[in-house]
């Protein structure tokens, strides 16, 4: 295959993968603590919107990303209030969070920009290249000529892997997800851990959304998350609840998503909707094949009441 096409493919794979990666890493933290966060989609969307608005008015994409992370953290806190504090059903609360995000971003967008036809654009976040490595064939540009947020997401993988496996707080987190009662008996404050996990999840998911709006699309469209939050849920499962696995899975889904552009470039006459369907169908196929082989945290999805 042509070098240029491969390079393009690599670049778009990484671009597609980063939001998934960030959201999935956030979800990893939450799920390792025993909480399923269906609201990931909403958090991603909130992040995308907040980043764009902040970047538009301040001219700084960095500020946009920073505020997005903050907004995501707040959303995580909101989710924690219902799911950890009030012991609400995690699926329903997550679905409600998505609705809320959809509504809030929609209302806010129209309130700020009015119902215009043209899209609001911002200048994308700047990319920083790593000398030498940047010139590697095929994926050199994709990986080593990235925005700071992109680099952060790469670095986060080994960081999170280390934190989960080699630190005491990471161990405590895993304990809460496996057996909250036993964790409490060992002195771990289960509710606090789960709350913090959701806050981190929200922050990371929002960062993923920020990448979408400020790096990838340079704009915001209502509902632009387009189910990435849900795909990220599948990424966690396919990645077998490990940070490195999630990286691979995110790249895999990123590749699938970006194939559509490449096929169009090749002039293949397949309706583009088929490609847009691909990530979702793939998720189903992979999950179906994965039945029972991956082991989620034992207490996943179960509420915890202190007697």
């Amino acid at each position: 295959m042509d070098q240029a096409i491969l390079t393009g493919l690599a670049a778009s794979t990484v671009t597609m993968a980063v939001p998934l990666l960030l959201a999935a890493l956030g979800e990893l933290i939450a799920e390792r603590s025993g909480t399923i966060n269906i609201g990931l989609e909403g958090m991603l969307l909130m992040g995308a919107f907040t980043a764009l608005i902040a970047a538009y008015f301040s001219g700084s994409s960095a500020l946009g990303i920073g505020l997005a992370v903050g907004a995501g953290a707040l959303f995580g806190l909101l989710m924690a209030y219902f799911v950890v504090g009030a012991n609400a059903n995690q699926v329903v609360a997550g679905a409600a969070l998505n609705l809320l995000a959809l509504g809030l971003t929609g209302v806010a967008y129209r309130a700020v920009f009015g119902v215009t036809g043209s899209a609001i654009t911002v200048r994308g976040a700047p990319a920083f290249s790593v000398p030498v490595l940047r010139s590697l064939p095929v994926f050199g540009a994709a990986v080593f000529q990235q925005t700071l947020l992109g680099y952060a997401s790469f670095v986060l993988v080994p960081l999170l892997a280390f934190a989960l496996a080699r630190t005491l707080p990471g161990l405590a987190l895993r304990m809460v997800g496996e057996n909250p009662r036993a964790a409490e008996a060992q002195g771990v404050h289960v509710k606090r851990v789960r709350t913090l996990a959701l806050v981190a999840c929200g922050a990371l998911a929002a960062a993923g959304g920020a990448f979408l709006s400020v790096v990838y699309a340079n704009t915001f469209v209502e509902g632009m998350s387009a189910g990435r939050g849900f795909i990220a849920l599948a990424v966690v499962i396919v990645g077998r609840w490990s940070a490195w696995g999630i990286l691979l899975a995110a790249l895999f889904f990123g590749l699938a998503s970006s194939l559509q552009f490449q096929f169009q470039a090749l002039g293949v006459a397949v309706p583009y909707q088929l490609f847009l369907m691909l990530p979702y169908v793939l998720t189903l196929v992979v999950l179906a094949g994965y039945a029972g082989r991956a082991r989620p945290p034992a207490a996943l999805g179960q509420g915890y009441r202190r007697d």
């Binding site: 209030y81 219902f82 009030a86 609400a88 059903n89 329903v92 609360a93 679905a95 409600a96 969070l97 998505n98 609705l99 809320l100 959809l102 509504g103 809030l104 929609g106 209302v107 129209r110 209502e222």
Partner: peptide, 16 residues
Amino acid sequence: VLVSIIQATVIFALVA
């Protein structure tokens, strides 16, 4: 789009 917010708030409120 406010309607979405109302829906979401209703669910949250119910659950809380």
